[in-house]
């Protein structure tokens, strides 16, 4: 099937070529209005978590010919998010590895003969002039588009919008269910915190990909210090820890990062930053501090949203908890 598809794609490429025949339309991107193919077959993604992963999720894997990636400890490149959530890697697909952040290999992209390149405004601007010579290049302004807007734009560009909408409908049903089970969500606060002991601060996150999105959509509140942020997160001095106490504190561990590989390592990191942190936080004292595996909830994907939804629902609706004393 894959072979057949590849052959068809090549045939399409040879016969039609992006300039010839292929139906085009205009797309309002962060870098202006771009003429893009209606049915792109050879997409290049310049970011794994927020572009390649949604493409994989919406069933467009076989239209992706190349992606940005990262190097694992054994120097094997992988697609963050797509690997953990969908077992999609450079080995088991025809997606080619294009390089790491900031140093994308342009030649390899040219060799793939893409018909559409999707990148991020603010990250890939330096390469834009060169990329445009290869294929229509869309840079998404993800800050402006927001969580769903970014995913929708990717789905729209790849021509898989119906799949996006189907998944969106399911997610909206999940949120409705959350609101049914937790009617007074606004009275419940969550804080998404991340300790960075080497750098001496705690990141207080207003935006944390899917996890913060579910919290927002479900109507949960955040501590005033975090809710009032203009930027996605604050590198907070440990001295301010009590001010971000909440009914539930969420913090994540990640096997890829040294010193963050398990909940115990994260606890140790908090302890390093604030000795006796657990006594300071009502959420921790009452065992309402939740340790989450990071990548499953840290991506632009509906699978992450569902994972985060189940996680929050289980903890908040599924058990009694001691509310934060005002």
């Amino acid at each position: 099937m894959k072979l057949l598809f590849a052959a068809a794609a090549m045939l399409a490429g040879l016969l039609a070529g992006p300039a010839l025949g292929q139906d085009t339309r205009t797309f309002a991107a962060g870098n202006g209005t771009v003429t893009v193919p209606v049915h792109p077959l050879r997409i290049v993604s310049l970011h794994d978590l927020s572009i390649t992963l949604p493409l994989v999720e919406f069933g467009a894997t076989e239209r992706v010919v190349g992606s940005h990636g990262r190097l694992e400890e054994d120097n094997v490149p992988y697609i963050r998010g797509a690997k953990e959530l969908y077992e999609t890697s450079f080995e088991n697909t025809d997606i080619a590895f294009l390089g790491v952040f900031g140093e994308i290999d342009l030649e390899r992209i040219a060799g793939l003969e893409p018909d559409l390149i999707i990148g991020r405004l603010g990250n890939d601007d330096a390469l834009l002039a060169n990329l445009e010579k290869l294929a229509p290049t869309v840079l998404l302004d993800q800050q402006k588009l927001g969580f769903f807007g970014s995913m929708q734009a990717v789905a729209d560009l790849a021509g898989v919008l119906p799949d996006y909408e189907r998944q969106l409908a399911r997610y909206q049903a999940e949120i409705a269910e959350f609101k049914r089970l937790v009617p007074h969500a606004a009275d419940i606060s969550v804080a998404i915190l991340q300790p960075w002991p080497e750098d001496g601060y705690i990141a207080a996150n207003k935006q944390y990909y899917a996890l913060s999105q579910v919290a927002l959509d479900a109507g949960l509140s955040m501590p005033p210090l975090i809710a009032g942020l203009d930027e996605p997160s604050l590198d907070m001095s440990p001295e301010l820890l009590p001010e971000v106490d909440a009914d539930f504190i969420l913090t994540s561990y990640e096997g890829l990062y040294p010193g963050q590989r398990s909940p115990d390592e994260i606890r140790a990191a908090f302890e390093t930053l604030v000795p006796g942190y657990c006594q300071v936080l009502s959420a921790c004292r009452n065992n309402q501090m939740i340790f989450v595996a990071r990548t499953p909830i840290y991506s632009s994907s509906f699978r992450s949203l569902t994972t985060a939804y189940q996680l929050l629902l289980t903890h908040i609706a599924g058990r009694g908890f001691v509310p934060l004393a005002q």
């Binding site: 080497e198 750098d199 601060y201 990062y257 390093t272």
Partner: peptide, 21 residues
Amino acid sequence: LLRENAFDSYRVWLSGSLAGR
């Protein structure tokens, strides 16, 4: 360049910092 993840948390330390020791 080769180990984005591994070095992520040492950027501040490398510029000399007394925070969070």
